[in-house]
Design a protein around this nucleic acid. Sequence first.
DNA 1: ATGGTGGGTCTCCCA
Length: 256
Amino acid sequence: MKIATWNINSVRQRLSLLQDFLVKENPDILFLQELKCESEQWVLIESETPYNYYVHGQKSYNGVAILSKFKANEIVTNFPANPCFEQSRFIEITCNTDIGFCRFISLYAPNGGEVDSDKFKTKLQFYDALINYLEIIRAYDESLIIGGDFNIAPFDIDIHSSFKSSNTTCCTVEEKYKMRSILNMGFYDLYRLANPNTQEFSWWDYRAGAFEQNKGMRIDMLIASGRAAGYFQNSYIDYNMRAQHKPSDHAPVVAW
DNA sequence: ATGGTGGGTCTCCCA
């Protein structure tokens, strides 16, 4: 079983890179975020790949999808008490897979804007609602995998030292605690599980040569329940896709 | 404190 997550920052701008990535990695499941288009606008590649496409798109901003080699039984595009329900930030499917019944979620958490802004408060509320929802489905004791842009770097190792973590969105203590409480529920961060001590990032600002200087954060993650995590021993962040011409500002995260 | 780039509904908003 091979899975990947990628904030693609406009799927229409990235069709060729997406094709390259699918051919190179051939994942069974790909979680995508920030499609920045309606569901029907990128069906053009659908016939050329061996995937079922489960898309919760939106014009202009947001938009998430799951590309799956397994057919979905159920598809849901929201979770209870989500304060951003009008934005396409969540899609969940269930499938019968090679490793049994699985629940898969593609998540695009709010960025939060400036620390302490209204958007920031909404981000924290989004996490409170998400944590409540995960408490419920955790009790099912299923194989659950979330691939997402969480917009939080959970620990200091996940943040380049040039960021002032106390007042930079995605690395404040308040945000870290939200992410850690998900991990403390018994969900595993597959990259960190496979690479306990490596400092690598999944996002770098387009500006000021951030990628060239490796000034990034690790905010994109594959999170698995205990039942599912045992099927994954390896994980890496595909820096090569970030180094391509006209890249997304995020690199894909792969696990197998 | 500002500005840097690159998406989007494109001289403004969002990251």
